[in-house]
């Protein structure tokens, strides 16, 4: 190796990064180690969303069922009333001379 190449070697000698470089690298690896926490948070959020969707569905179904019950009772009463009227008409006729 000639003098010029020796000069290049000296110019390009290895240098150390700032103190605590390895610790900084390790610190940056930690988010990956804790990725399960994010997965847990995401899982919980998904569960909450699912519960929300289910509750909305349940509420709509409940409201629908309530309305259907009232409709069914109205029709039941209405038709019973029709029967009552028919009976009344018959009774009225039977009393006529």
């Amino acid at each position: 190796m000639n003098e010029f190449e020796e000069q290049l070697k000296q110019t390009l000698s290895r240098k150390q990064p700032a103190i605590g470089f390895a610790e900084k690298v390790l610190a940056r690896t930690h988010p990956r180690n804790h990725s399960w926490k994010w997965a847990l948070v995401a899982g919980l959020a998904a569960c909450l969303a699912a519960v929300g969707v289910y509750e909305t569905y349940r509420y709509q179904q409940g409201q629908f069922a309530k309305e259907q019950v009232m409709l069914a009772l109205r029709i039941t009463a209405d038709k019973t009333h029709v029967a009552q009227q028919k009976v009344d008409q018959l009774n009225h006729r039977s009393f006529l001379p």
Binding site: S13, R14, K15, Q16, P17, F21, A22
Partner: peptide, 8 residues
């Protein structure tokens, strides 16, 4: 062990 190499 390798930081000087990579950094340099």
């Amino acid at each position: 062990q390798h930081q000087a190499m990579v950094f340099s």
